[in-house]
């Protein structure tokens, strides 16, 4: 069971309070009707399935209720960082440099 830092509560808490919510930084088009079938398919179904650092979303569902983003290494299961929804993608090299 992992420990996860909620960027809204600023607390590091047991995984049981959280729910996984899929890959992060996959934005829904502002005007979906202008999106091609292929792009809409990719938006719906195509994911990076990363081995290593993975940008993903979690929700502090049994806490403050907020969705937020995280970078987690899918090999070690370790969180490299968590950050608020809407914040820029953190730079991977800085993160992995710190963590390894």
């Amino acid at each position: 069971m992992l420990l996860i830092r909620c960027p809204y509560c600023d607390e590091t808490l047991p995984e049981l309070e959280f729910a996984y919510a899929g890959e992060a930084h996959i934005a829904r088009a502002l005007d979906p009707s202008s999106v091609t079938d292929e792009d809409w398919r990719d938006f719906l179904f195509i994911r990076s399935n990363a081995k290593g650092p993975h940008y993903e979303r979690w929700r502090h569902v049994h806490g403050c209720g907020r969705f937020f983003n995280a970078v987690r290494d899918t090999v070690t299961d370790r969180f490299l960082t968590t950050y608020k929804a809407g914040e820029a993608k953190p730079d991977l090299e800085t993160l992995t440099g710190d963590a390894r």
């Binding site: 069971m1 607390e11 808490l13 047991p14 049981l16 309070e17 049994h62 806490g63 403050c64 209720g65």
Partner: peptide
């Protein structure tokens, strides 16, 4: 409660499990 109860100080509250 998987959260450490001591992480809630007297006079505070949290939503938890």
């Amino acid at each position: 409660c998987p959260r450490d109860p001591d992480s809630i100080k007297p006079g505070q509250g949290r939503r938890t499990l």
